[in-house]
């Protein structure tokens, strides 16, 4: 049976049509379903992005294609926005992630009022930047409730917590924390609790279990959480205007990009700032994700 003429094999191999060979590679009619999505992403994301990229190399006044970038970095006022944005975004993201770990930990397992507490922690998502800003201005303002209590407690003068760096940072924590918390919670509940129990039967203390079992399994998730929190904080725009000091200490990249493009009508320069923003963003995310590849990223035994 094995020694049948290979001539026939040859013939049938040739007969394997192109369609079948493509199907072998996963290319078949199902891929038509991708067309709307692909057209969409190319038309509304890739094309504008590339358009912005090439626009950024066509400075308004003509001349050196890199002029926009040179101008951006040689002008201290605009160059400083990179640092200002990072100084807001990184601490805010870091705080949100770190704060959500112990809280998410307490929220594991069942207890009375868990659902209510989760909902309470999620509510700030609904506040929106404007209500948060109004609230921060009123609550932390010089005559707000916070400073009234502060002075009643014996302080000499009201703490300055609005229209500066702190106001924006508070706003970023209020709007960003629920996201970080929910993500951390979902990663944490993906870890099989029996793993910790197994470690406990092997004599690991609470602290050891956290350090040797939970943390290593949670770390890749935390990296992703950090990235997404950072995107959120890094994009800061309305709150930097409303509760910050948009011309000074909280003159972030979004404000610079927006004002240049839509107020001064210099789309080329605005695009250049947007591209730089994307670049800084990608660098930070890239660093975090590269660090993440050094971690264990397999199954965590949970329900996912």
């Amino acid at each position: 049976m094995t020694a049948l003429p290979s001539l026939r094999d040859q013939r049938s191999l040739e007969r394997a049509s192109l369609k079948h060979r493509l199907a072998e590679k996963g290319v078949d009619r199902v891929l038509w379903l991708l067309v709307p999505g692909a057209v969409f992403v190319v038309l509304l994301f890739v094309y504008p992005f590339l358009y912005g990229l090439q626009l950024s190399f066509q400075p308004k006044g003509g001349g050196n294609p890199f002029q926009n970038y040179i101008t951006f970095f040689s002008d201290e006022y605009s160059a400083e926005t990179v640092w200002i944005t990072l100084r807001l975004g990184l601490p805010a993201a870091l705080f949100n992630v770190l704060a959500s770990i112990p809280i998410a930990f307490r929220m594991r397992g069942r207890f009375r009022g868990k659902r209510a507490l989760t909902t309470l922690l999620v509510v700030p998502i609904t506040l929106g930047t404007v209500l948060t800003a109004e609230g921060l201005l009123a609550f932390f303002g010089p005559t707000g409730w916070f400073n009234r209590i502060w002075i009643a407690l014996g302080a000499d003068e009201p703490a300055k917590l609005t229209h500066n760096y702190w106001g924006v940072l508070f706003s970023l924590v209020i709007t960003g924390f629920p996201f970080a918390f929910l993500l951390t919670l979902s990663y944490l509940s993906g870890i099989d609790p029996t793993l910790e129990q197994a470690a406990a039967t092997l004599g690991a203390s609470k602290r050891q279990r956290f350090r040797t079992i939970t943390m290593p399994l949670l770390a890749p998730g935390l990296a992703v959480t950090f990235c997404l929190s950072f995107v959120l904080a890094f994009s800061v725009f309305p709150s930097a205007v409303m509760v910050g000091n948009p011309a000074g200490e909280t003159h972030v990249m979004s404000i610079a990009a927006y004002e240049t493009a839509l107020r001064d009508n210099d789309f080329a320069m605005g695009s250049a700032i947007a591209m730089l923003m994307a670049l800084v963003m990608l660098i930070v995310i890239g660093v975090v994700l590269i660090w993440r590849t050094t971690l264990y990223r397999g199954a965590t035994g949970g329900k996912g």
Partner: peptide
């Protein structure tokens, strides 16, 4: 017909 043939008929 759930799998295309590589060859034959």
């Amino acid at each position: 017909g759930l799998l295309p043939l590589t060859g034959g008929r």
